[in-house]
Simulated scan of single mutants.
Amino acid sequence: MTGTSLSRLGPGVDNVAVPLTGEKYTQLTQHQPTTDDESHGRWVACDESGWDGEQLIGRHRRFLVFASVAVDDVEAAVLVQALRERGGIRQAGELKFRLFKDHAQRLSLLQELWAPGGALRDRCSVYVVEKEYAASAKVIDLLLEEKEYAEGGNLYADGQARALARTLALEGPRALRGPLFGDLMSAFVALASQRGAARHGEASEAFFTVIERAWAASTRKPVTELLARLRSTRAYAAALHDEDANFPLLEMLIPAAAQTARRWGHSLGRVSLLTDEQRMLTDNALGTVKLYARSPVGMTLFTRERGADVAAVVRGSSSDHPSVQLADLLAGAAAAVTERHAGNDSPAASALWPAVVSFVDTSSLLPYDDPAARLRTVDERLTRR
């Protein structure tokens, strides 16, 4: 994946908390409160906002955020109770960001929590995915890089893959006027997603028909040259669904969780990840997160990154785990900040962006060298669309 080291690896309305049942969710559910200890190391609670599965194009919310807080349930319970008391929150059930976003006094409590000297200042991280850029990166990874590798090349060796993904994502909309760029990316998603596997021949033909139209219509040389290279990837498109993958080809939640575990492990030593319940995070998916986080990754000697000491990756209900409630607050705030970046400001984003952008993971899947610096701004490229 361009922009991360997992090369094989939605307005989205946030998922309603529904108990997960069935054989896919029987092994890795954490019912007991988490406590930092020698066996598990430091617990890191996580929650997402903006997930749309493989549907990366044409969604109301352009960003997926995966927020994490290095805190166990014992400490989190004290912080959650303090937020309730000081915020005058009497509603039953767990804390949610919606209880804070339209209340200035409550937002000030979050500012205090995350500000320098605050209880969670150095214990928060946010991995951000711009979905359209993720789709562009997947075009390169799944088609062009496969062709390059088969011919003895390596697009990852000197950053070519990332540069090509940025060319497609940033210059593509300008080079392909009207709806053509959207048509191109939508056709790719239809081809590479699990839905495309059932009608692969039809989806492939539709994609390459759009490729030909786009190549002929492109008004920018770098995009035209990239599209010319993609015209010769039919064989690799035909093989997209030939092998059983550990998870859907366009699924971004699993690599986001794996990267989060890896980063915390490098920072803190032994860690365990507690994710909010989410239907994509099956036992197999959580096992994949742990495997990737523990494994060394990188295509060259200079980019190789060691694995992290991740003791466990489990799921848990926010109603059972106050630490997940703190992750929910951060995920909601981060979603508001990314909406501000896309030109949709709000009181919550205006109040919280200075704190939140400082938590943004530098390896976030965004077409910027410095994601945090860019998320401080309003992106005219996004607001014009």
Rank of each mutant, 00 (worst) to 15 (best):
V189A: 09
E85Q: 14
H31D: 14
L365R: 12
S272D: 11
L329Q: 03
W43P: 00
L144P: 07
T209K: 13
W43M: 07
L164N: 03
R306A: 15
R220K: 15
S7C: 10
A206D: 10
R199K: 13
A335E: 05
A192H: 02
A119W: 00
S193I: 07
G269H: 04
E212A: 15
L375G: 11
H341K: 02
R62Y: 00
L79H: 08
A311Y: 01
L268F: 05
A327Y: 05
F359M: 15
F100G: 05
K138L: 12
L107H: 02
P116M: 09
A349V: 11
R306H: 11
V289S: 09
A311H: 10
P367H: 06
L6G: 01
L109S: 09
D36C: 08
S49P: 07
L191Q: 04
D244N: 10
T300W: 04
V74Q: 08
P296T: 11
D102G: 03
R177P: 00
L366Y: 03
L184D: 01
F100E: 01
T26G: 06
S68M: 09
R231H: 07
Q55M: 06
L120D: 05
Q160P: 00
F207K: 09
D36W: 03
R42V: 14
L227V: 05
K138G: 08
W114T: 09
W43N: 05
P367V: 05
G117H: 10
P296Q: 08
L382P: 07
A45T: 07
A76G: 11
L99V: 09
L250I: 11
L56D: 03
L274C: 08
V310E: 04
K24Y: 06
D320L: 15
L155C: 12
H103R: 13
L99G: 08
L301P: 09
V18Q: 06
G58I: 02
W215V: 13
A187R: 10
D345M: 03
D141C: 09
A76H: 04
S363C: 13
D276C: 02
L83P: 11
E38I: 11
G172N: 10
G152H: 05
Y133Q: 09
P222I: 08
A293E: 01
Q30G: 00
P222G: 12
H200M: 00
D47N: 01
S272I: 09
S186D: 13
A285V: 06
A348Q: 03
R229T: 08
S318V: 11
G269A: 01
G172K: 07
S346E: 02
S186G: 14
V126P: 04
A285F: 01
A214H: 05
T219E: 12
L184K: 06
L6R: 08
L28E: 03
G196Q: 04
Q105S: 14
L365H: 08
T35Q: 14
Q30C: 14
Q325I: 00
G201L: 08
L79C: 02
A92E: 12
S186C: 10
L226W: 00
R294V: 02
A206E: 04
T2H: 07
L144F: 05
A82T: 15
E277W: 02
C46S: 12
A349Q: 08
E243G: 03
L110D: 00
L155D: 02
L352V: 11
V289P: 00
E132C: 05
I254E: 01
E151C: 10
G152I: 07
L184F: 10
T21M: 12
E243K: 12
A17R: 12
